[in-house]
Structures are given as structure tokens and as C-alpha cells.
Design a protein around this nucleic acid. Structure first.
Length: 140
DNA sequence: GCCAACGTTGGC
DNA sequence: GCCAACGTTGGC
């Protein structure tokens, strides 16, 4: 079971917006970066991830689940761009800020801390556990 | 608002 | 195939 992190600017598409989509979730479209796309192609339905607010908040705010495996991005005419669907599972009891993550030794290798520009990232088992602990949230 | 980091593009 | 120029992202 792999874990992931999805970044979004909350003024464009926020956690609340995803919650409003319900169990069917939302196509995570618009990604035009190979690394991010490859991460989505590696995802399996049912895997979990973090939802992170960039720019505003700069914190992980919720847990999401891959609702559908990678499929062609409906907003792209180019078949090389795939995306998954994600749904909101539950909010973190306490959001974990980027600043907090940077001060956490267990997260020193996290992609979020070291390559802030990648919009869809892998999260290791250890990082996942550390984030859940910091957020006072039980694993889904 | 600035700018560093990164990815992509295109000329050679 | 290299690399300079450019555009975008996102933290500060």
C-alpha cells in the first residue's frame, strides 16, 4: 500500500471543494508534469493520500483516497496526460503545516519539504505515520 | 511582490 | 543531444 500527497491552491480548489464532491470524488485533472503524471499512473484504487493547501495555509488538511485508477485526463486532448480520481475521506484533526513538517526529523526526506514544486508526490510509510501522529488523526 | 528552483522549449 | 532562454510554481 503506497501513500501519496496532492497539492492544491485552496483559492482554486480547496479541501472543502473536494468534500462537496462526495464519495464519487473528483478527477484530478490539469496536471501537465511528467513526474506528477507518473505518480498518478502508479496509484491503485483504494490507496490513501494527503491533501495539501499550497500558497494559502501551506498545510496538509485532509486524507483522500484514490477513487479511480489513472485514466485519460478529460480536460486534455493529448492522450499522454492521465489522471486519477480522488475523494475526501476525512479531515485531519489538526492540520500539519509545512513549517511543522520542516522541523520534524522524521519528515526531513519528505518530497514536500525538499521539492515543493511537485504537485503529486509519493509519501513513504514512515512519513504517513508521522503526519498522522502530528495531526492527532487515526489511520483511515 | 520577489525570486529561487525547476521543467520545458527550441535553436544550434 | 546540448544548453540558453523562458515560463511557472510556490515559499518567503
Amino acid at each position: 500500500m503506497a501513500y501519496w500527497l496532492f497539492k492544491s491552491e485552496p483559492n482554486v480548489f480547496s479541501w472543502d471543494d473536494l468534500v462537496a464532491k462526495g464519495d464519487r470524488g473528483e478527477e484530478w485533472d490539469g496536471v501537465r508534469n511528467y513526474q506528477a503524471r507518473n505518480n498518478m499512473r502508479a496509484m491503485k484504487a483504494g490507496e490513501f493520500g494527503l491533501f495539501y493547501h499550497s500558497n494559502i495555509g501551506k498545510e496538509a488538511v485532509g486524507i483522500v483516497q484514490v477513487a479511480a485508477q489513472a485514466h485519460p485526463d478529460s480536460t486534455s486532448g493529448d492522450p499522454k496526460w492521465d489522471c486519477v480520481d480522488i475523494r475526501a475521506v476525512k479531515p485531519l484533526a489538526r492540520p500539519v503545516s509545512l513549517d511543522r513538517a520542516k522541523r520534524e526529523p522524521a519528515l526531513s526526506g519528505m518530497v514536500l519539504v525538499n521539492n515543493s514544486r511537485l504537485s503529486v508526490q509519493p509519501v513513504t510509510d514512515g512519513e504517513w505515520a508521522a503526519i498522522l501522529a502530528l495531526s492527532d488523526t487515526e489511520a483511515p
